[in-house]
C-alpha cells in the first residue's frame, strides 16, 4: 500500500505539472495571436475571441448536451475497442500463429480510409449514435489490438520462469507477471487511441449529420462562422484533455509509480 503522504505528494506534483502545460498552451496562443493579426478576424479569429465564443456556447445548456453526446459516443467506441482489442490482442500475443494470421487484416483495417468506414457504417447502422460509436471503435481497434499483442509477445520470459520456479499457478502468473508488462506497453497506445476515437466521432457526426459537436461544426461552416467553429474545436479538444488527464493519466501514474522512482531528481514529470 502506498502511504497517504506519498499519494498526496504525487497528486501535488501532478497538479503542479499543470503549470508547464499552461506555459506550452500560452506559446501556442501567442503564435495563434500573431497569425490572427496577420490575416484578420474573418480568416482566423484571435484566441480571445474564440474563448469568448466558447464561453457563450457554454452558457447554453444545449451546448453541454452536444459535448456530452459526442464524448459519450467517443468513449463508448473507445471502451468497445479497448475491451475487444485487449482481449483479442492478449490471445494473439500468446499464439504467434494467430498473430501472423491477423496481422494482414490489421494492415487492411488501418488502410481503409475512415471516410469509407463511415459510409459503410451509415448503410449498416443508419445515421445515429451507433454509426458514430462504431466509427470510433473501428478507428482505434487495430492499434489497441497491436499494442496488447506486442505487450504480451515482448514480455520478459525470464520473469515467467522465475514465477514458475516459485510455484505460481497459471492464473496468478498471468495476473501478476504478464498483465503489468502488457499494460506498460498498452497505456501510451490507449492515450493515442482515445484521441483517435474523439477525432473519428466528430468526423462521423459531421458526415452523418448525427448531432453532437460534428453537426454543430457543420452548422458553423454553413454560416461561415469561423469563431464558432474554432470554439467547437476548442471545446472538443478540452473534452479530450479532460478525459485524458482526469482518467487515463492518473490510472497510468498509479500503475507506473516505479517509473517515476526511476527518474533522476529534477526531471520528474
Amino acid at each position: 500500500m502506498t502511504s497517504l503522504a506519498e499519494r498526496a505528494s504525487r497528486t501535488g506534483q501532478f497538479l503542479w505539472s499543470g503549470w508547464s502545460g499552461l506555459a506550452g498552451l500560452s506559446v501556442f496562443a501567442a503564435v495563434w495571436q500573431v497569425a490572427h493579426e496577420a490575416y484578420g478576424s474573418f480568416i482566423l479569429p484571435s484566441p480571445l475571441e474564440t474563448l469568448t465564443a466558447a464561453q457563450t456556447l457554454l452558457g447554453d445548456v444545449s451546448a453541454w448536451q452536444l459535448l456530452l453526446t459526442t464524448s459519450s459516443r467517443a468513449l463508448s467506441g473507445f471502451a468497445l475497442a479497448g475491451v475487444i482489442g485487449t482481449v483479442a490482442g492478449c490471445i494473439a500475443g500468446f499464439h504467434p500463429a494467430i498473430l501472423r494470421l491477423v496481422q494482414p487484416q490489421i494492415t487492411l483495417m488501418l488502410g481503409v480510409p475512415p471516410i469509407a468506414w463511415i459510409v459503410l457504417l451509415m448503410i449498416w447502422f443508419g445515421t445515429g449514435s451507433a454509426t458514430v460509436t462504431m466509427t470510433a471503435a473501428v478507428a482505434c481497434l487495430p492499434i489497441v489490438f497491436l499494442g496488447a499483442a506486442e505487450g504480451i509477445a515482448s514480455r520478459d520470459r525470464l520473469l515467467d520462469d522465475m514465477a514458475l520456479s516459485l510455484g505460481m499457478g497459471q492464473v496468478r502468473r498471468f495476473v501478476r507477471i504478464i498483465v503489468p508488462q502488457m499494460l506498460n506497453r498498452l497505456f501510451p497506445i490507449l492515450v493515442m487511441a482515445l484521441g483517435t476515437a474523439f477525432k473519428a466521432a466528430v468526423m462521423a457526426e459531421l458526415l452523418a449529420n448525427a448531432g453532437g459537436i460534428g453537426e454543430a461544426l457543420a452548422v458553423s461552416r454553413s454560416n461561415l462562422d469561423v469563431a464558432n467553429a474554432l470554439a467547437w474545436i476548442l471545446l472538443s479538444v478540452s473534452a479530450l484533455l479532460a478525459v485524458e488527464y482526469g482518467l487515463i493519466q492518473p490510472t497510468r501514474s498509479e500503475l507506473e509509480a516505479w517509473r517515476h522512482a526511476a527518474r533522476p531528481w529534477g526531471v520528474k514529470r
Binding site: M162, L166, P180
Partner: peptide, 21 residues
C-alpha cells in the same frame, strides 16, 4: 526456489513486494 544469475525482480514492484511474491 531458484536464485538466478540475474536478480529477475519485477521492476514495477518494491523490494518488499518482490520478496512477498
Amino acid at each position: 526456489a531458484v536464485v538466478f544469475q540475474e536478480p529477475r525482480l519485477l521492476p514495477w514492484a518494491t523490494a518488499r513486494k518482490n520478496i512477498g511474491m
